[in-house]
Design a protein around this nucleic acid. Structure first.
Length: 465
RNA sequence: GGUCCCUUCGUCUAUCGGUUAGGACAGCUGGUUUUCAUCCUGCAAAGGGGGGUUCGAUUCCCCCAGGGACCGCCA
């Protein structure tokens, strides 16, 4: 077999949801595991619904999650003439025929079948009528002459052998009456011309595969291998659709999920490798195979995404984490000034312990990011005279400390606790509020170290004035 | 309604006929702790039902039930 080539072929008619992203990921991983190529094909032949903004969103999403396609994106609409040529060739060699039934006529037949609760299948009316008897001035569609007798077997790389009766596949339309090709024709011709060796796609395409295989056979083209992966279901157990909430990548990046975490989650959704849960990009390429794909659909579990994200926050190196944070804040919160880089980076060790998402890190790092802090009103009201006295006392001590670290700060706080006959909260809380604006947040010593002596003193002075 | 697919803890899954059915997330305990967390103990939690085959079935076969996908001159 020639070098593995796979593709992801979305239609730009809506936002790409994470089911599609997973399909892209699997295709990409499969090809990379085999040192092959992966391609992106934009199936934009539905002129009514295709939009450039969706195409851009698809490309952006793949990039965000780290799936890179080889070469330029293949734009299906630019190949329509090729598709039409193949339709004509199929017509010429007797594998297709012109059908002069009007859409109204077909609709009528479908309606009747539904009423009688019979399965509808096009009645093949024009299949054997010679061209000489064709009506004049009536537009025709071209239908593929599908097999009627016998059965077909799909040797699916995930599902095993799937057998169906050929007569359940109707004579499907390959060219509309306006002369444009339909999906099954276009996809097949493109896959062939692009040299695809493996077609990995959602379960919902299985019937299409039986149709497409017949085109390959009729054209005498080499058949690619097929793998149909189970769909992702919502928690209610239905197919994930564009209408469902929280299903695009943006929905997850918005709440502070990192691309690597989502990639890892998606990889393990419906695929497994021993008991391994965490896969770096390199490991996922190394271990990915079709064998590990389960046969049953899997449900999307947001708490799992969150915990995966938390794992990545706590375990990736701090430079990457910082980059993720900066990216996130730039898009969704505020631009982080580069002069804060050192302070934030050196604070990540404690910030990340309190975070499941980048939002959490941002919220807890606000007191570093912004020079002017916003006070939570209720918390601010806790700063009474007694609290101010403690803040003042602490400030004096702090100004005498030359080396700001926990070892030096702790005795100061402890002595203040004793002196004021209170507990840690009595001292820690006012200080925390004064320094960050909120009584919740990072550990007190971490806060002071993060701010540095001068900035801390400045903030303490401000609140008692 | 027809065709096809699926069925192990709540969720994602492991098991290539013999296991106390394993792991992870979530949940619940207990401990550490400076708020909030983290971290560490531990607990609980599963083979849809019925038939076979077999010394032995979660595993192989059949039936049923349940769920899902498809059934466009959309892709």
């Amino acid at each position: 077999m020639s070098k593995v080539a796979t593709r992801f072929a979305p239609s730009p008619t809506g936002a790409l949801h994470i089911g599609g992203v997973r399909t892209a990921l699997f295709n990409w991983l499969y090809s990379k595991n085999h040192k092959g190529t992966f391609h992106l094909r934009i199936e934009d032949t539905d002129k009514e619904r295709s939009k450039d903004e969706y195409k851009d969103q698809i490309i952006k999403s793949l990039k965000w999650i780290g799936v890179e396609y080889d070469g330029e994106e293949y734009i299906q609409s630019t190949k329509i003439n090729d598709h039409i040529n193949i339709a004509n060739e199929l017509l010429k060699n007797g594998n297709a025929y012109k059908c002069y039934c009007s859409s109204e006529e077909i609709e009528e037949q479908k309606k009747r079948a539904r009423q009688k609760k019979l399965p509808y299948i096009y009645n093949r009316k024009w299949r054997d009528i010679p061209e000489s008897e064709a009506p004049k001035g009536v537009k025709s569609v071209i239908r593929f002459k599908s097999k009627i007798e016998g059965t077909s077997i799909l040797k699916d790389l995930v599902q095993g052998d799937v057998e169906i009766d050929n007569n359940t596949i109707e004579d499907f339309i390959i060219l509309r009456n306006d002369g444009t090709p339909t999906y099954n024709l276009s996809a097949t011709v493109d896959d062939h011309q692009m040299g695809m060796t493996h077609i990995i796609r959602g379960d919902d395409h299985k019937i299409n595969t039986f149709k497409q295989i017949q085109i390959y056979l009729a054209m005498n083209w080499e058949l690619p291998k097929f793998a149909h992966i189970p769909l992702i279901h919502t928690i209610e157990g239905k197919k994930l659709s564009k209408r469902d909430n929280a299903s695009t990548l943006d929905d997850y990046s918005k709440i502070g999920i990192m691309p690597d975490a989502l990639r890892n989650y998606l990889l393990r959704l419906g695929w497994s490798f021993e008991d391994k849960e965490i896969f770096t990009l390199e490991e996922s390429i190394e271990h990915f195979n079709l064998k590990g794909i389960g046969k049953s659909p899997s449900k999307l579990d947001v708490s799992r995404i969150l915990s995966m994200n938390e794992y990545y926050i706590k375990n990736i190196d701090e430079n990457s984490l910082y980059q993720n944070l900066v990216e996130y804040c730039k898009i969704y919160k505020e631009k982080i000034n580069s002069d804060k880089e050192t302070k934030i980076k050196s604070s990540l060790y404690f910030l990340k312990n309190k975070a499941k998402t980048l939002v959490d890190i941002y919220n807890n790092a606000k007191f570093i990011i912004n020079d002017i802090i916003e006070f939570n009103e209720d918390d601010f009201n806790l700063i009474d005279d007694k609290a101010k006295k403690i803040i003042l006392e602490f400030s004096k001590e702090l100004s005498n400390i030359s080396n700001i670290n926990k070892e030096n700060l702790e005795p100061v706080v402890n002595s203040l606790i004793k002196k004021n006959d209170t507990n840690f909260k009595g001292v820690g809380q006012p200080l925390r509020i004064a320094l960050t604006g909120s009584k919740f947040g990072p550990g007190l010593y971490d806060i002071i170290i993060a701010l540095g002596k001068d900035e801390a003193l400045k903030r303490l002075a401000k609140i008692i004035s």
